[in-house]
Simulated scan of single mutants.
Amino acid sequence: MSKVIFITGATRGFGKIWAEAFLKRGDRVVATGRSIEALQELKDKYGDLVLPLQLDVNDRKASFEAVNKAKEHFGRIDVLINNAGYGLFGTIEETSEEEARKQMETNFFGVLWLSQAVLPIMREQKSGHIIQVSSFLGLITLPVLGLYNASKFAVEGFSETLATEVKGFGINVSLVEPNGYTTDWSGESAVQTKSMSIYDPVKQAFSEATATPGIFGKPEATAAVILKLTDAPEPPLRLLLGSFAYPAVKKVYEERLASFEEWKSVSEEAHGA
């Protein structure tokens, strides 16, 4: 049975690749993006299987309206994939208020609004799957991406909570956590802060670390994985994507646990008698 998939940020990168993967197997896709023109290619190729909608996920009202249009058009929404987002590159001190707020508006609040909008529909259906495109940087951090890290940590926290709240309605929540991929996430889509030369050594170290051969995955390789995720009867809460995500996360979590253990007696002392 074909599914109805609602995907944000479907004009390029993961969003476009995944939209095509669903369409090729006969699913119906609500493809959203800031530019309706950029979605025309999908419409021309797949016709009535696609409902293209212009959407700025920062606009809560527009997000609810888009979800309602999708429901009216296809009759249901089986899967929501919150993919829209971008990277903000720069150190914490360099980041302006406007840059910080815009990063959180898109990467966190945009995800929140769409999740809220789709819940009444999925509750009524007694089924649904909300997939949040987070990052392995929602579990660990890298320098020069502080606000991006923060936005993904926020998505992780609210989505884990959401999963416990809606499981009884037949709704699953999954967090997809890719390592770096060769999309334009760090290129045309990215925003750069105004640089302070004092941080040049930090940025140089970051550049050298991310220049490791093979560190970036191939976006096309994720398509089959996303199909498997949406088809799973019991999908996981978290799914790391890429070869580098797991060892990086494992190392940091082992270090955290060791530090907790080292300071355990002090932690217990703080509880009081």
Rank of each mutant, 00 (worst) to 15 (best):
Q116D: 02
G170S: 08
R101W: 10
E254D: 14
V176R: 01
V111W: 01
P236N: 09
S267F: 09
E65W: 00
R76N: 07
P247G: 02
V191Q: 13
W263T: 08
E37H: 11
L145Y: 06
K16M: 11
A211N: 14
L241N: 05
L80F: 03
E97A: 10
P201K: 13
R12F: 07
T182D: 04
T32G: 02
A117M: 11
A205P: 12
V57I: 13
K45G: 04
E41N: 07
T193I: 09
F206W: 15
R34W: 07
K250I: 01
S115F: 07
W185D: 01
A190M: 14
A163R: 15
G217I: 00
V50P: 11
L162V: 10
V111C: 07
F64K: 01
E105H: 02
P219K: 02
A223T: 06
P213Y: 06
P236I: 07
L241C: 08
T11S: 15
A117I: 13
N149L: 11
L147I: 12
P236R: 06
F206D: 10
E97N: 10
K43C: 08
V133H: 07
G90S: 15
L147N: 03
M1G: 12
S151V: 11
A21K: 03
P235D: 10
E72D: 15
R123K: 15
G26I: 11
A232N: 15
K218G: 05
E160Y: 05
S127F: 04
G217T: 01
A100F: 11
A100M: 12
S197H: 13
S35C: 03
R256S: 06
F153T: 05
A273N: 09
L257R: 09
F153A: 04
L119M: 13
F169G: 06
A224I: 13
D59I: 00
T183A: 05
F74A: 06
D48N: 13
H271S: 14
A209E: 10
A163D: 12
M122R: 13
G272T: 09
D78Q: 10
L142T: 00
R123H: 08
G15P: 03
P52M: 12
F108A: 07
A223C: 09
Y253G: 03
Y46M: 10
A248P: 03
S134A: 13
A270I: 09
S267E: 12
L42N: 08
T182C: 01
K167F: 14
A62T: 01
W263A: 06
E37F: 04
P52W: 13
A223R: 04
L162E: 08
H73M: 03
E268D: 14
E72W: 01
F109S: 00
K24L: 12
I226C: 14
V176L: 06
M104I: 15
V118I: 15
E268K: 13
L162F: 08
K251L: 09
F108G: 00
S115W: 06
N58R: 14
S134W: 01
A150E: 07
E177G: 00
G87S: 14
L53M: 09
S197T: 12
S207D: 14
P219C: 04
F109D: 00
V173S: 05
D48W: 02
S135V: 03
T8Q: 01
I92S: 14
I121C: 03
S189A: 15
A245C: 05
E255S: 06
I77F: 02
F64L: 02
W18M: 15
G47K: 06
R12N: 15
A66I: 01
D200L: 08
V225M: 02
G217V: 00
